[in-house]
């Protein structure tokens, strides 16, 4: 399924130039802030930044940035035809691009959460949050890849999902947790450390994460299969 050439090109697009700096800014900001607060305060204030800011905001933002930059610009300006006019499986292209986005999300999103959580002590809790972040990062990157394959406004659409649906409405209505990628991850992390919240039931969280991931990557590939070249608009 994987195509090494596509993955290499996607990685080059992701790491090339300024976007890499933007991607790197998130973990630096997060770890720096948590370390600073941990050094200056006692109690649990430093850790609270992670479930309050790192997990619900930085992680999905990294996933959005990664998923949209491996696919978004090429679909946006139509230059993806250079990749598509080859005897290469479309699902292979989607999978390769997703793997690259996933790698970036884990390295720049989930790993910093682990590092920052370790800074605040309590290794079990840190690993629990990391597992949650890794699961959610996997699902997010597949979901946002699918969104990038559909609309040119992928970034804004994904942001609205994260900020308004999962964030704003998720805080108001607890039922949103059943349809929230971040909450599924937390529920899975809860199995490791009970300090994490317990928003939905476990089988649902696992099944939903798997289904959204697989469906997201498959759907992105399917959209590429029907990619239509249009004139300038």
């Amino acid at each position: 399924m994987m195509n090494a050439t596509i993955a290499k090109l996607a990685a080059q697009a992701l790491l090339g130039r300024r976007r890499f700096i933007l991607l790197l800014a998130f973990p630096v900001l997060l770890i720096g802030l948590v370390a600073l607060v941990a050094a200056l305060t006692d109690g649990d204030a430093a850790f609270q930044i992670l479930p309050g800011l790192g997990y619900p905001l930085v992680l999905p933002l990294v996933a959005i940035l990664a998923a949209s930059s491996v696919l978004g610009p090429e679909v946006d300006d139509g230059s993806i035809v250079y990749l598509l006019s080859k005897p290469v499986s479309r699902h292979g292209i989607a999978t390769s691009k997703w793997v690259v986005a996933l790698g970036a999300t884990l390295v720049a999103g989930a790993l910093p959460i682990l590092v920052a959580a370790l800074v605040t002590g309590d290794t079990t809790r840190a690993f629990a949050l990391f597992v949650g972040a890794a699961v959610a990062g996997t699902t997010y990157s597949a979901l946002f890849l699918a969104v990038s394959a559909v609309t040119r406004h992928a970034v804004i659409a994904s942001l609205m999902f994260v900020l308004i649906w999962e964030g704003l409405l998720g805080n108001l209505f607890s039922g949103v947790a059943w349809l929230s990628v971040g909450q599924w991850g937390l529920r899975i992390g809860h199995e490791i450390s009970s300090e994490l919240p317990d928003p939905a039931n476990l089988p649902w969280a696992i099944a939903a994460s798997v289904v959204v991931t697989v469906a997201g990557v498959f759907f992105a590939g399917d959209r590429l299969r029907s990619f239509t070249l249009r004139g300038e608009d």
């Binding site: 300024r18 959005i64 940035l65 930059s69 946006d76 040119r152 992928a154 970034v155 804004i156």
Partner: peptide, 9 residues
């Protein structure tokens, strides 16, 4: 940042 996605982020 002239790419829309990056400007938004």
């Amino acid at each position: 940042s002239l790419r829309r996605g990056f400007a938004v982020v």
